[in-house]
Amino acid sequence: MAFFLSLAALIPLDNPGHYIHWHFLDLSVANLIVVILMVCTFIAALLLPFPGRSRRKENR
C-alpha cells in the first residue's frame, strides 16, 4: 500500500484549468495540448523515416 501511496500524482492537475478564448472558441489548455500533440504525432508519423528499410530491400 505504501508503494501506491508514493505513487500519488507528482503533478496533480486539480487546480483550476486555464482556457483559451477566441471569438466563440473556448478551449481548455489541457484539451488544446492533446489536440496539438495529436496533429504533431500525425505529421511526424508521415514524415519520420521508418526503420528497417534496408533489410526489407535485401529480402526482396
Binding site: P12, D14, G17, L25, A30
Partner: peptide, 14 residues
C-alpha cells in the same frame, strides 16, 4: 464547451 472539459486542468473528452 463544457461537454469536453474535465474538472481541474485535466484533458477531458476532447
Amino acid at each position: 464547451w463544457g461537454m469536453m472539459n474535465e474538472t481541474g486542468s485535466y484533458p477531458g473528452q476532447a
